[in-house]
Amino acid sequence: MRTVTAIPARMILLLLVWWVLTEGNLSGLAFGLAVVVPVAMVSVYLFPPGARRIRIVPFLLFVLFFLGRSVVAGIDVARRLLSPSLPANPGYLTFDLELPEGGPRWLLANALSLTPGTLSVTLDGARLDLHCLDTRDPVEEEVRAVERRVAGVFGLPADNWREKGGEVG
């Protein structure tokens, strides 16, 4: 059932992308349709729709949060680079994720690569290795903040995965 609704939904999304790519020129629409239909079908085969739906409002809030954090991240690195003493204390930190596997972990790992001071290195099951620009920074708080928001995007109940995260405060 999920697959049946996923194909038209992805076709609409891909058509929107096509419309954007052709800058609204309708003369390319026939070619676009000829590409969009098979691509949507193959995409469902290659990337089967997940069991979890993305919640629109938390997703938009996540995008805003992410944009804000990525601006902070850029300014943070720029500030370190321009400082004569080059303040940095790089190192690895490992975290046990409480998010379920699949989309949520993937989104978290990618988002963390662009949030201040963290870079996802390996994601092995629930274990995420991060390279940190400065291990003295409150990396744990950053990770848990992003994790909490990713959980919201996928509509995961907060108490379900926050029980173990209680020690983070």
Binding site: S70, V71, A73, G74, I75, D76, V77, A78, L81, S113, L114, P116, G117, L119, H131, L133
Partner: peptide, 11 residues
């Protein structure tokens, strides 16, 4: 990589 990804993204 920290420098390139984060700062260039902002640029």
């Amino acid at each position: 990589i920290h420098a390139l990804t984060k700062v260039d993204n902002l640029g």
